[in-house]
Design a protein around this nucleic acid. Sequence first.
DNA 1: ACCACAACTATACGGTAGTTCAACAGAGAA
DNA 2: TTCTCTGTTGAACTACCGTATAGTTGTGGT
Lengths: 201, 201
Amino acid sequence: MPQKATSPKYVRLTGEERRARLIEAGLACMARGGIQEFTVDKICAEAGVSRGLIIHHFGSMNALLTAVYATMYDGSTKLSRELAPGETRLAALLDAFFAPEVFNRDAFNIWLTLWGQISINHDLKEEHRLQYAEYVRDVAEAIGEVAVESGRNVDADVLARSLVCLIDGLGIQHCIEPMSMHADDAKAACRSFLLPHLGSF
Amino acid sequence: MPQKATSPKYVRLTGEERRARLIEAGLACMARGGIQEFTVDKICAEAGVSRGLIIHHFGSMNALLTAVYATMYDGSTKLSRELAPGETRLAALLDAFFAPEVFNRDAFNIWLTLWGQISINHDLKEEHRLQYAEYVRDVAEAIGEVAVESGRNVDADVLARSLVCLIDGLGIQHCIEPMSMHADDAKAACRSFLLPHLGSF
DNA sequence: ACCACAACTATACGGTAGTTCAACAGAGAA
DNA sequence: TTCTCTGTTGAACTACCGTATAGTTGTGGT
């Protein structure tokens, strides 16, 4: 006996929302198996859609990869929040970096995969240039604020670049051997790195 | 007119030497194009041998990958040399890390690729466990020596772990944007990191 | 009710992945 | 020379890659 209203063959979304879901699926696959799992088959299966959709919405796998990279930056480095009274922007930034949503195995497995692609993928390199400069500038400004406040003379840019490298390295270590590098250890290492230059903040 | 001695159809090597050459070819491919270029076709073409040899000598591509990882450790972290009079082992270690043969784009492109594989590849994870612990221990001992000499009380293990992370992060940055992070900058960052804990060394 | 368009499916295509294997080539021993 | 290993080739195999495209489904405007 036929149903009056037949059940839909698929769930229809707006292009923008479908793109977001494909990016999420791509992130999940990449976290699970690096660039080898970042394939049309795996991502579409993860998202529960047919194989044609990635090309339809992004034009190419490379475009999806670039979108994934941009999404990682959005999620990890642009989480400015309200400062508590007396809290410096630098302290808030460090808290954000080592929050569980940002500092975790999956995330750094994805970062590791993406970094490995940057130097061999022109589009990704372009996207990186756009995002990274802004990221370091934010950190440098936060360091500069503390330096001014405490009347110390530091090269905020150099310090920021080193700090960012340290954070990356700590994240990698956490990714590879989580037990040997907890978020607290990592944050402490960063503070210990900054302390001699800025004092407590 | 036929030659008396026909030219050989291929160059015959001992198994060990062929393995070494395949590893070198694998490194070259990985430096060029990450894990995507680390394929049977590309590596055998690079080494100038037929496609069957990798399986014959290593049993699987995964075994070759593991051998490549071990080779990177041999080349980068086990280059102890004679100490100059009055030179600390820590200073020599830092010099070695930032020497051109170790601190360069190709090398860190390879490291990046390998690190991205560790958490998704069981064999590689095993190899990592063996190598990394020894590496950190060496650094920690070098730090400990300086600490004792200068009569300072530091946690050499914690310091070593952080230093190693910093070096990794600096290397990645150099790999992705060489102009923004020269070897000298990177070494200076490491010294600046250690200075408050150890004094000059 | 119909149309126009966007979202989506399904499949086909050429290329390339890692592995297997039977046959061949070279070098030293007998 | 002949035998015996080991190194080496190269084609065959199955599986999967990213892309292209023809056709179907759903939705909102008129």
